[in-house]
Structures are given as structure tokens and as C-alpha cells.
Design a binder for these strands. Structure first.
Lengths: 154, 154
DNA sequence: GTCGCTGCAAAACGTTTGCATTTAG
DNA sequence: CTAAATGCAAACGTTTTGCAGCGAC
């Protein structure tokens, strides 16, 4: 699997960004970034979760450092901050490539990602019609997932 | 203009809901609902703004009452709560009819609404493919609006 | 030795709730 | 009269910041 390779690549990009900005490579940063990069692509971790996972590797890491590191990762384009309806921010690895959106189950909070180039195209057209230059977008579909639908009939 | 009529209609729906639920018609509720219903369709007021407008008509209205009234309006389906990226909730009159989404200018925070049935259709298809029963969605396109683009070249 | 980074604790933020009082029905 | 609604102030949960000490370079 290319997983290892991809994480290494992400870490490489981070190091490059740090150097380019005259910032330092530190233990906490490395741990937090790695926890984040290693998360399953559909986990969408919140600060709390990242913090607790990071602590398993270095007990001293503080919440504020997680916050600041994720902010940094977002600024350099390695992370995307998402705000679903549940009150806190979640982060996902910025897919260098295709953008994707989310299907969110209102019952079990499960999240499925999807890509739909056709929607992206239409959306680009809509924006142009209104004179907007698109920088990003967010598209979330809320509903009840298959397994929760089944459970409901029980 | 049908504006007056429409506000009256919305107020009527609210009264009907209140009666149906055994709730009371009170001064503060009337004022808050009216402020909300009278807002321009693209204003997307936050609690703060609704509160301050309501206070202009009744100095005694408290923030908590605005909060609870907007929650009520949301529950009975007369308001939709929106959370854009700016940290607080905004409300808009629930268009009984067609759903619409938002184009948001990252520079001036201006908001333009749009409807795109084609996107809705595709999205329905995507959800079905994943076994989801759609209940709602949110689609926001972020970018720079025409006038901010011009300003930028200045 | 710098200057950035860290952890802690505390502030800030919008949202939400407990409670004593007021008021619609 | 009674239960619902109100305003205030305080509690919440999360995000953000101030600061003294620590550590990368």
C-alpha cells in the first residue's frame, strides 16, 4: 500500500513549508502532524481527538499547540477545516487533487465522502453568472444512512 | 408590492403554530418575529442583529428571548438556521417553496442566493447511490464577488 | 544567544440554561 | 389562577490568546 509513502510525502511538504517560512521543526509539531496525516481519510478529526491521539505519543503535548499546529497546517494548505453542524471544527487532509464533499448521517453522524465533477462544473457556471471568482466551496448533504434506515424499521 | 402581504402571511402561520401547540402570543415574540420576517431576504441576520433591531421597538427585549424565539421559529419551520464560516448562527426566512443556496464573498462577506435544480437532482442521485435518504443539504460557494474584484485592481 | 515554540491557565466567543418574576389565557 | 414566557445573569463548550519558560537553529 502507498499509505506510508503518502504520509512521508505530506510530511515532506510540511517540512518544506516550515523551512520556507523560517519556522522550526519541533517534536510536538511532528507528532501532531503525523497523527493528523495518519488518520483515516474519512475520520474528520476534531481538535479534541487529535489532542488525545497526540498525547498517546507524547504525554506533554497541550491543547493549544494542537490548535496552533492545525491552524498552521490549514494556512499552508495541508489541512482543510470543516464545520459541520455539531458545534466544533474538524480537520481533513487536503487532497492535493480532487475536491470532495460530504454525505452526513443525521442519526449516527457517519460521514461519507463523494466527488461529483458535474456539480463542480455547474457551480462554477453559477458563480460566473454572478460575477464571483470561486475560491472554494462546501457542499454537505444531510440525511439518514442505509444502516440507520434499517435500524429504524426494527 | 406583495411584501406586506407576505409578512402578514408569515405572521399568520406563526399564530397558527402557536395556537396548535398551546403556546402564547406575546409582545416580545411578535416583535422578534416581525423583525425577522421584515428583513431583506438576503440579510441572513444573526441573533445579535435581530436582538438590536428588536430593541429598537421594545427596549426591554432580552437576548435569551430572541434566542428562544428563533429556536421556536426554526422548529415550526418558519426559519432556517445557517452556519457559515464566521462563527455564529444566522437565520433566514424559510422559503416555503424552492430551496436555495449561497454564494459568499470572502472579502466583503456579501451573500448572494442561488437556486440550481440541476444540482439538487444530481445530489439526490449521489445520495441514493450511497443509500442515504436526504433530509436537507447545504451548498456554499466561497469566492470574491465582482465589486471586490474591481476594488482589488485599484 | 536569538527568536520562535510550548504548555498552562485564563480570556473570549457565541450559545444555552436556571431562576425568580411577569403575564397571557 | 396556572402554566408559559420573560429578562437577567450565570454556565457551557469550544476556540483563541497572554505569558513565562523552554528549545531549535
Amino acid at each position: 500500500m502507498g499509505e506510508r509513502r503518502e504520509i512521508a510525502a505530506l510530511e515532506g511538504r510540511l517540512v518544506a513549508e516550515l523551512v520556507a517560512r523560517g519556522l522550526r521543526q519541533t517534536g510536538p509539531r511532528r507528532v501532531i502532524a503525523r497523527v493528523f496525516f495518519e488518520a483515516a481519510p474519512d475520520e474528520h478529526l476534531g481538535l479534541d481527538e487529535i489532542h488525545s491521539r497526540a498525547r498517546k505519543r507524547d504525554r506533554h503535548i497541550g491543547y493549544a499547540t494542537v490548535y496552533r499546529t492545525m491552524k498552521l497546517l490549514t494556512e499552508v494548505g495541508l489541512a482543510h477545516e470543516r464545520r459541520f453542524g455539531d458545534g466544533f471544527s474538524r480537520y481533513e487532509v487536503a487532497a492535493g487533487a480532487a475536491h470532495h464533499d460530504h454525505l452526513i448521517c443525521s442519526r449516527c453522524a457517519g460521514i461519507v465522502e463523494f466527488e461529483e465533477p458535474e456539480i463542480e462544473a455547474i457551480q462554477e457556471r453559477v458563480a460566473r453568472r454572478h460575477g464571483f471568482a470561486v475560491t472554494s466551496h462546501r457542499h454537505e448533504i444531510y440525511g439518514i444512512c442505509a444502516s440507520c434506515q434499517k435500524a429504524e424499521h426494527g
